[in-house]
Amino acid sequence: MSELYIPVPTRIILPNTKANFVTYLKQDDTYVLYSISGEQFSPEHQLRLELQDITTLYVSREEEEELNAYVERHIARVLADSSIPIHARAEAWTRSASSVGRDLFEKKLPPSMLKKHYDRFEKFITESASIFKSPEGLRELSKLIADGYDIYHHGLGTTVLTASVLLSFEGGEDLLAECGAGAMLHDYGKLKLDPELLKMDPTLMKYGEKQKWDTHPILGVQACAGIPLPPEGIHCVLFHHEREDGKGFPGRLKGEDMPFYARIVSLCDHYDRLTRKQHYRSAYTPFEALKAIRDDKGLYNRDAFMRLVNVLSDANIADL
């Protein structure tokens, strides 16, 4: 029966807010009604729960979307509340981020709806800056977003890494919304490709297959025309397979021809892709992924690479 309910730390339900879902208390193996949908949570609610040593409420899985929407609305307050354990804040963030990100990847969205979902994601990423700056937060997020090889799973992983590295630059916060969303959408063009092609190892594709696969950055920019993406977002989508040595695609840009934030997305895309299980191979460990990137001398910008290493090292995710 427990799989029918989602455990939620009591602190996630913030005072002076309304939740459009029912919450329950667990007594032995029974779930007992605590609050009704639309009820205003007050400081007295929180105090009463604390006095009874109750740290967890439960929400029916049937109302998971409402729970995700609630966290999305209040994400800045949730992440800023140090009384909520960091792993609980990371879980709440991941659940809501997955929901917002998945909505972006719904097929055949009309332009107006795609624009609405894009604006939601930009706002959500901007309000999430505090967890990207936190090594402990990044460590917890990395555990939660590591699984899955769908395009939006990889997009979410690339977004988290991009945001964490970007915020290590002075002024990086000013680019967080556009580049975070661009990182999320960097593989959007793959939705236009044959799903069977996406299961293949790009290094083993035949010439015609590789030609089709190489079009996905351009297809991504075209598919996002209805948003429309800001220039920084376009750069992130279009340039994420370029290389420092000019041997990437689609533009064969070299070094300084590519904006620094697009280099960050390219690097984080590569790292996340290596550490994520694929149809054709198992996942690399963080150490193996960083070593593979380091050994490919023409792939990366050294400053961006060292910042990624430092971010992962500070979070105790990888050591090189």
Rank of each mutant, 00 (worst) to 15 (best):
I6P: 01
I6M: 10
I6Y: 04
P7A: 11
V8F: 00
P9A: 11
I12D: 02
I12E: 01
P15R: 10
K18F: 09
T23I: 06
T23V: 06
Y24C: 04
L25Y: 03
Q27L: 13
T30K: 14
T30E: 15
Y31T: 06
Y31K: 03
Y34T: 01
S35I: 07
F41E: 02
F41G: 02
E44C: 03
E44N: 10
T56N: 05
S60P: 00
E65L: 12
Y70C: 05
I75C: 00
I84M: 05
P85W: 08
A88R: 04
A88Y: 07
A92S: 11
W93T: 00
S96E: 04
A97L: 02
L104K: 01
E106W: 09
P110T: 07
S112D: 15
K115E: 14
K115S: 14
D119R: 15
D119P: 00
A129C: 03
I131Y: 06
F132S: 00
S134F: 12
P135A: 09
P135F: 08
E136A: 13
D147Q: 13
D147T: 13
G148I: 07
D150M: 10
H154Y: 02
V160I: 13
V160C: 09
V165C: 02
G172Q: 03
L175W: 06
A183N: 00
M184Y: 05
L185N: 01
K190N: 06
E196W: 04
L197D: 00
M200P: 01
P202V: 10
T203V: 10
M205T: 03
K206R: 15
G208A: 13
V221G: 02
A223M: 12
A223N: 04
A225H: 11
I227W: 02
I227T: 07
L238W: 03
H240L: 09
E242S: 02
K247Y: 09
F249D: 04
F249H: 10
F249V: 09
R252V: 05
L253G: 00
E256S: 14
M258Q: 09
S266T: 13
H270I: 12
H270A: 15
L274P: 05
A283P: 02
T285N: 06
F287Q: 15
A289G: 07
R294I: 08
N301Y: 03
N301W: 07
R302K: 14
L308T: 03
A315T: 05
D319R: 13
